[in-house]
């Protein structure tokens, strides 16, 4: 199995191993500890370094790896790119968070907190939306998200106003809801999912 640092290197071309722990990523982070992150991004970088350092001691390495993949931090990242923009070492930190999220899902390690669960559910609903229609149908997205999370009441207060403002049509909403019944990729998007699968395989083989 590849180390987290290796995964980041192949996805972003930069490496957390260059991090010298200055903390600027955390200092400028849109979210950070006070806002639901259990540690600053600077600590994520350190844990990735330590996993690499203990590569030849699999148990210790796995401990470090788990601390990263089960953290709330990687999910609370807003992908605002401020850390990447200002990192003095030129590390793609936001890109690193992407790799961590994807790996956490693949390895079934994503945090189990309610807040993270909602975020992961929204991502999954969004991708399913694309799978079904090739596009992001906002009503269908909200519908699936609510089914996944049970947050039935959230945003329902906005719906009448949105219809009033012409941002949503009642008929469209019904059509969108019906689209939820479809399964498997739509014809217009099949080739993209195939391409993604090919890219994933190639990356794995490398």
């Amino acid at each position: 199995m590849k180390t987290l640092a290796e995964l980041v290197k192949s996805a972003t071309g930069t490496t957390p191993l260059d991090c010298y722990q200055c903390g600027r990523c955390s200092a400028g982070c849109t979210q950070n500890v006070t806002e639901g992150m259990d540690m600053g991004p600077v600590r994520i970088m350190r844990l990735i370094q330590m996993e690499e350092a203990f590569k030849d001691q699999p148990e210790t390495a796995a401990e470090y790896c788990d601390r990263v993949l089960t953290s709330d931090t990687i999910w609370m990242c807003a992908s605002c790119q401020t850390c990447t923009q200002r990192c003095p070492q030129g590390i793609d930190i936001a890109g690193t968070m992407d790799v961590m999220r994807q790996t956490a899902i693949q390895r079934g390690k994503a945090a189990k907190s309610r807040r993270v669960y909602d975020i992961v559910s929204a991502h999954k609903a969004f991708i399913n939306c694309i799978r079904r229609t090739g596009k992001n149908d906002e009503v269908a997205l909200v519908g699936e998200y609510k089914m996944r999370t049970g947050n039935f009441l959230s945003d329902m207060n906005m719906a009448p106003q949105m219809m009033l403002k012409g941002k949503m049509s009642p008929f469209g909403a019904i059509g969108s809801a019906l689209s939820l019944l479809k399964s498997g990729p739509a014809d217009n998007v099949k080739h993209v999912f195939e391409a993604a699968e090919a890219l994933r395989k190639e990356e794995e083989e490398q």
Partner: peptide, 25 residues
Amino acid sequence: PNWLCCGATSAHSINHALATALAGD
């Protein structure tokens, strides 16, 4: 013609290959 969704934050967050494939498309 026939453009598709870019995948947005969700794709690059949990499915890097899909994000790339959608942009490529």
